[in-house]
Amino acid sequence: MSDELRVHAAHRADMQAKAAADMAAIGIDAAFLDRLVDTFYGRVRAHPALGPVFEARLAGRWPEHLARMKRFWQAVALRNGAYSGRPVPAHLAVSGLSEPLFADWLALFGETLDDIAPTQAARDVLMASAERIARSLILSIFHNPAVTGTA
């Protein structure tokens, strides 16, 4: 390994350790993120608008989806590189997905955080991330000329 690659790897490891320590200080760790994903998606499945859309896409594949979402949220919060998927193409393939469902998703995510977040800071950090992610997906899926075919 070259010196440049070693320095980059060490820097990345330092950044991951700092992110994990910062998140741990406000109560966010892998165990909490697992609980968040399990609780949230349990609520998604019961939601009158979100449940049918998710079920149509994930019927028989919920365990794989939950594992993927746990890796995703670990990558977001802990910056550990656990997730390497492509969210936009995955969401483009969801039948029945509409822009207003993102507001429902965010509201339910916020309610879940209100109920189980260990601290207000944890709630704020994760909610801000969810809002950025939703905004990015909305723009990419519903307002992107390359996807929608509008100029």
Rank of each mutant, 00 (worst) to 15 (best):
H8Y: 12
H8R: 14
A10D: 10
H11A: 15
H11C: 09
R12C: 03
R12E: 14
R12T: 11
A13W: 09
A13I: 04
A13H: 11
D14M: 05
D14L: 04
D14K: 08
M15N: 12
M15V: 14
M15P: 00
M15E: 14
Q16K: 08
Q16G: 01
Q16A: 08
Q16V: 05
Q16R: 13
Q16D: 00
Q16S: 03
A17T: 07
A17S: 10
K18V: 08
A19Y: 01
A19F: 00
A19W: 06
A20C: 03
A20R: 12
A20L: 09
A21S: 11
A21G: 05
D22T: 08
M23N: 02
M23H: 03
A24K: 12
A24N: 09
A24W: 00
A24G: 00
A25G: 10
A25E: 09
I26R: 03
I26P: 07
I26N: 06
I26Q: 00
I26A: 06
I26K: 03
I26G: 01
I26Y: 04
I26E: 03
G27K: 00
G27S: 06
G27Q: 04
I28T: 00
I28F: 04
I28Y: 02
D29V: 03
A30E: 14
A30L: 07
A31V: 13
A31K: 14
F32T: 01
F32Y: 12
F32S: 03
L33H: 09
L33T: 13
D34L: 06
D34K: 13
D34M: 03
D34S: 14
D34R: 14
R35T: 15
R35Q: 15
R35D: 14
R35A: 15
R35C: 12
L36I: 08
L36P: 04
L36R: 05
L36H: 02
L36F: 07
V37P: 07
V37I: 05
V37E: 05
D38R: 12
T39V: 12
T39F: 09
T39S: 13
T39H: 09
T39L: 09
F40Y: 04
F40S: 07
F40L: 10
Y41M: 06
G42I: 05
G42S: 12
G42D: 14
G42Q: 13
